[in-house]
Simulated assay, not measured.
Amino acid sequence: MLNIGCHLSVSKGFEAMGKEALKINANTFQFFTRNPRGSKAKAIDPKDAEGLLEIVKKNQFATLLAHAPYTLNPCSAEEKTREFAAQVMADDLARMEYLPNNLYNFHPGSHVGQGVDVGIELITSLLNMLLKPEQTTTVLLETMAGKGTEVGRTFEELKRILDGITLSEKVGICLDTCHVYDGGYDLVNDLEGVFEKFDQVIGLDKLRAIHLNDDMNPMSSHKDRHAKIGEGSLGLEAITRIINHPKLRHLPFFLETPNDLAGYAKEIALLRGVYKE
């Protein structure tokens, strides 16, 4: 079965997201832990979380993915900015235990002129401070498009972060198809080569989720502009190969395309139609 979902709004509550997912024939979904452009988080109602867990169990959902807000920069040159990232992520990981054994994704951040080495050191230090042996959540580093001074634009940079983590079993990678194509990895003409490279550098066992997006720009553009499935430079054929790839097809796929709920429903139906059961 194709494990596919989209981004849903947590403002309506956990159980409501589960019901919305069912309406569009999704069997997983992604949500922001709080305002994606701010710091406020809605108080969690334990009964609401239990309601979602019942939906997940009854309908055999794949792993869910929570996304940290965009405002975080764990490798900022400003100490206050790094402290803010640490506080939010610590709170998010505590809140995630209401939905145990799921995934939490974040953007590694931008080193803002300090250099990649400093950026990587700051990110690994933060994760080593935050990760706890008892947590059930796996924290994922997202592959980045390479805008400005973003860290995580190459598999090698992500590997260096992972290598610095003490509790290595608590971390993994979320690969964004638009981002890696923007970053120069040719998913259209060399899909096998890209994932062989990923396996050699990082290891496919660390790939835990895929953001499935088409791309408004050509390969290596470093611009990060998501397109609807089949309407960008990646195209439906390449995306079909990705979801059917024998080493990827078991993963949860999360749409972050420019869509409303009806649009996501159409994309999910499209992708289920080209998925080979």
Results as ranks from 00 to 15, higher is better:
residue 3 N to L: 11
residue 13 G to A: 10
residue 15 E to I: 03
residue 15 E to S: 13
residue 15 E to Q: 14
residue 18 G to I: 10
residue 24 I to M: 03
residue 24 I to P: 06
residue 28 T to S: 14
residue 28 T to E: 04
residue 35 N to E: 03
residue 36 P to R: 09
residue 38 G to C: 10
residue 46 P to C: 10
residue 49 A to S: 04
residue 49 A to I: 04
residue 59 N to H: 15
residue 64 L to Q: 05
residue 65 L to P: 05
residue 66 A to L: 05
residue 66 A to P: 03
residue 69 P to H: 08
residue 71 T to V: 15
residue 73 N to Q: 09
residue 87 Q to K: 15
residue 89 M to K: 03
residue 106 F to A: 10
residue 107 H to V: 04
residue 111 H to L: 04
residue 112 V to L: 15
residue 119 G to R: 03
residue 122 L to D: 08
residue 124 T to F: 01
residue 127 L to E: 11
residue 131 L to F: 07
residue 131 L to Q: 00
residue 133 P to F: 09
residue 136 T to A: 01
residue 137 T to D: 05
residue 138 T to V: 15
residue 139 V to P: 03
residue 141 L to T: 04
residue 143 T to A: 11
residue 144 M to Y: 01
residue 145 A to T: 04
residue 147 K to Y: 00
residue 147 K to I: 12
residue 148 G to L: 03
residue 157 E to F: 07
residue 162 L to D: 10
residue 166 T to S: 10
residue 171 V to A: 06
residue 172 G to S: 07
residue 173 I to D: 00
residue 176 D to L: 04
residue 178 C to T: 02
residue 183 G to Y: 00
residue 185 Y to K: 01
residue 194 V to I: 06
residue 197 K to N: 09
residue 199 D to H: 09
residue 217 N to I: 00
residue 221 S to H: 05
residue 228 K to V: 13
residue 231 E to S: 13
residue 231 E to K: 15
residue 232 G to A: 11
residue 236 L to H: 06
residue 236 L to C: 07
residue 237 E to Y: 05
residue 242 I to S: 07
residue 244 N to W: 11
residue 245 H to P: 08
residue 246 P to Y: 11
residue 256 E to W: 10
residue 257 T to C: 12
residue 257 T to N: 13
residue 257 T to P: 11
residue 262 A to D: 15
residue 263 G to E: 13
residue 267 E to R: 10
residue 268 I to V: 14
residue 268 I to K: 06
residue 276 K to Y: 01
residue 276 K to S: 08
residue 276 K to Q: 14
